[in-house]
Write a protein that binds this DNA or RNA. Structure first.
Length: 696
DNA sequence: GTTCTAGAAC
DNA sequence: GTTCTAGAAC
């Protein structure tokens, strides 16, 4: 490796060279494929910019900054002799001091992929060593190293120092003043610039970073939504810094790295600046400019987990980070992702264990990818928020919180596993719990607690629900299947989907709406009270589409379904409700039935109607949630056979020859509900729930 | 004769 | 999902 010294000081045959000569010489050397070292003060951004420009796309620009104390710089410049530029003695002190006043530490946003600050001799030696030991194909990590959070541009008491020099170096105070003036023809402009910098903090220097990966679990993550989804970068940087600070305050052992491909990334600069203002620990949070899929081999940063800014279908391609990560992860990652989730909601994330055959595991050593979906402000992409930054902020916050919580979950689960317990390609989905996010989180976690308190595990649902009918038991044994393949939907089955996707066109139709669901009265109620909580997530048509990442949504739907059931039972304490899903619905778009158990309705006309609510065709919401938590997806019984079963009373289980006879029976049946419907599956009026519990 | 089911059509 | 209706069941 040839490193010609293109110093402006020595370029002209040992005489002082010009900047133009230096630039010319450097450009030629780069053209020849050589590595070029510019040894120049370059204290200001403008001075450096022309050298950085030379690199273009074909060469990396690094900066090694001799960030020595002002006192030392001045002392050395005063003492030195024989300087090529004749800058020594008292004159040197004045010039150095002037220069230091204008010092603008280099930033990655200028185009440097790697910046190393040397504060002392050891740092300088290390920097020299790291460059001199590079092999032909070696490279050094991108990022900022060794920067300290001090802003002592000028030595304190310098005037006192210079006064002393007046006598020693024969430089008068006036000379100093006039020299400063002479050397600063643009001093007015500079003053304005400095003023601007005070007003615009983004032009001030970035935070200092001394980030080191000391074996702590480390997550590398891209900025979510600020690229293709066009989320305002300034606003997004606030969210990132908030979420990072919050997460780091909760867990003192983890490290986070924000990654952007471009060294000129505005996001990295914004985040660094805001993190510094917020005093975020730079040992635990850093930024990295480079390829996230090669951050370990190229950046030597020892990340365990990487995040991906994905699309709602979790599909490879598209561009940006998503394309890069799926591209680098290979088919194995694609399959593993598909197994974990088919779609993802904005503001949530999905953890995928990286298969051992994936290059991301083999080459980089990453163990997990966490796919994250943020808010979209791009009208060309689905679910555009149309500049609604109130929603946007919330969703972006949710997205980062979900990402960090899932990262914490990965660490927890890894800590509890043995190192060699890795899940190999094609095996079951990671049992990491997906965090619930958003405003219903607290309520949802209450549901979770309730489910836990009430005991039975989802995978035991079929075992504990011992059927009373032998036929049903046989149906169960013979035909438990997960209908995971996408079905085609007939023309008449899209009404709920249309409502969920375009609720603004159907304002008169719904009872309640949120970002996650819309609630309507069933058009053909099969009981006195029968409403539907319809999920609004695109691509979520039925139970077979559910994966771990839908748990927060399912819990929110359950919570709001409960709320309505409770409202109805307050109005009429005789009502009892069940909340559940049809295992094979006729209408597309996942919808939760909240239905009173009287089944007193002229719309309940046939066997199919009855059995769809009174056999295992009807899946209780609590069971679905538990089953997905346990297995990652919901298994379902053969719905066709279940729907043609005999008609049995849902209280006493007596059989009846036809619907009219059944209906007349249930109108007078006084038997309690069977034990299988207890454990949280029935919702009673609060005034009679204790009495109902005694019934059983 | 009426009641009810089940399959086709939408 | 519903509606319609032929035909089975009574």
């Amino acid at each position: 490796m040839a490193i010609p010294l293109s110093s402006a000081d020595t370029i002209a045959n040992g005489k002082a060279g010009t900047k133009a000569q230096c630039l010319k010489s450097a450009a030629e050397a780069l053209k020849e494929g050589k590595n070029v070292l510019i040894d120049r003060c370059n204290l200001e951004l403008e001075q450096r910019s022309e050298f950085v420009k030379l690199c273009g796309a074909q060469a990396d620009a690094h900066a090694v900054v001799l960030d020595l104390p002002a006192r030392l710089c001045i002392s050395r410049s005063v003492k030195r002799t024989g300087h090529e530029g004749n800058l020594q003695g008292g004159k040197a002190a004045a010039v150095v001091n002037r220069m230091l006043q204008k010092k603008e530490p280099p930033k990655q946003s200028e185009g440097f992929s790697r910046i190393v600050f040397c504060q002392n001799e050891t740092d300088v030696r290390n920097a020299v060593d790291s460059y001199s030991s590079l092999g032909l194909f070696d490279s050094l990590a991108s990022g900022i190293f060794g920067q300290k959070n001090l802003d002592n541009k000028v030595q304190q008491g310098i005037m006192k120092f210079l006064k002393k020099l007046d006598t020693v170096g024969n430089v008068s105070q006036d000379t100093f003043k006039s020299e400063c003036k002479d050397l600063s023809p643009e001093s007015v402009k500079e003053k304005e610039d400095r003023k601007d910098k005070q007003i615009n903090p983004l032009l001030q220097k970035p935070i200092f970073s001394d980030f080191h990966c000391n074996g702590a679990p480390t997550l590398a993550f891209p900025s979510i939504s600020t690229s293709d989804f066009q989320f305002n970068q300034d606003k997004a940087s606030d969210v990132i810094v908030d979420a990072v600070a919050n997460f780091l305050s909760k867990d003192d052992k983890v490290r986070l790295i924000l990654v952007d491909l471009s060294p000129k990334s505005n996001m990295l600069s914004l985040v660094r600046f805001k993190a510094s203002k917020k005093n975020v620990d730079t040992k635990r949070f850093s930024t990295y400019a480079g390829d996230i899929t090669r951050i370990n081999t190229e950046g030597q940063l020892k990340c365990n987990v990487i995040a991906n800014a994905t699309n709602w279908r979790l599909k490879p391609g598209g561009g940006g980070v998503n394309a890069a990560i799926f591209g680098a992860g290979g088919k194995a990652l694609e399959i593993a992702t598909k197994k974990q989730a088919e779609t993802i909601s904005p503001g949530t994330s999905v953890v995928v264990t990286i298969p051992t055959t994936s290059p991301l595991y083999q080459r980089e050593g990453f163990t997990h990818v966490i796919h994250v979906l943020g808010p979209n402000m791009n009208p060309q992409r689905p679910n555009c928020l149309q500049n609604d930054y109130v929603k946007g902020f919330k969703i972006l916050h949710d997205a980062y919180n979900s990402l960090f919580e899932n990262f914490a979950s990965v660490i927890r689960s890894k800590n509890s596993e043995k190192e060699d317990d890795r899940v190999s390609e094609g095996e079951h989905c990671e049992s990491v719990k997906i965090s619930a996010v958003g405003s219903a989180e607290n309520q949802a976690s209450h549901v979770e607690q309730k489910i836990k308190r009430e005991g039975s595990h989802a995978s035991d649902r079929k075992k504990k629900c011992i059927p009373h009918v032998h036929d049903e038991e046989e149906v169960q044994k013979s035909s438990k299947t997960a209908h995971s393949t996408k079905r085609s939907w007939p023309s008449w089955s899209h009404a709920l989907h249309e409502l969920a996707m375009n609720p603004e066109k159907h304002k008169e139709s719904y009872l309640e709406i949120s970002d996650d669901y819309v609630i309507v009265n069933d058009r053909y109620p099969k009981a006195k009270r029968h409403i539907l909580v319809i999920a609004r997530l695109p691509g979520l048509d039925c139970l077979a589409d559910l994966r771990c990442n839908h748990l927060p949504l399912l819990k929110k739907m359950h919570v709001v379904g409960l709320k309505w059931a409770e409202k109805f039972t307050n109005d009429d304490p005789s009502l009892v409700f069940r909340l559940g899903y049809h295992s094979a619905p006729s209408m597309r778009q996942l919808h939760l039935h909240v239905i009173s158990q009287d089944f007193e309705s002229s719309h309940l006309k046939n066997r199919k109607h009855w059995n769809s609510f009174n056999t295992l065709f009807f899946c209780d919401s609590v069971d679905i949630i538990k089953e997905i938590e346990a297995n990652g997806l919901a298994s379902m019984d053969d719905y066709e056979k279940l729907l043609s079963l005999e008609l049995r009373c849902h209280h006493c289980k007596s059989a009846h020859p036809n619907i009219p006879r059944l209906k007349s029976h249930i109108a007078s049946c006084k038997a309690p509900f069977p034990i299988q419907l207890q454990n949280g599956r029935l919702v009673f009026s609060s005034t009679r729930s204790s009495a109902a519990a005694c019934d059983t």
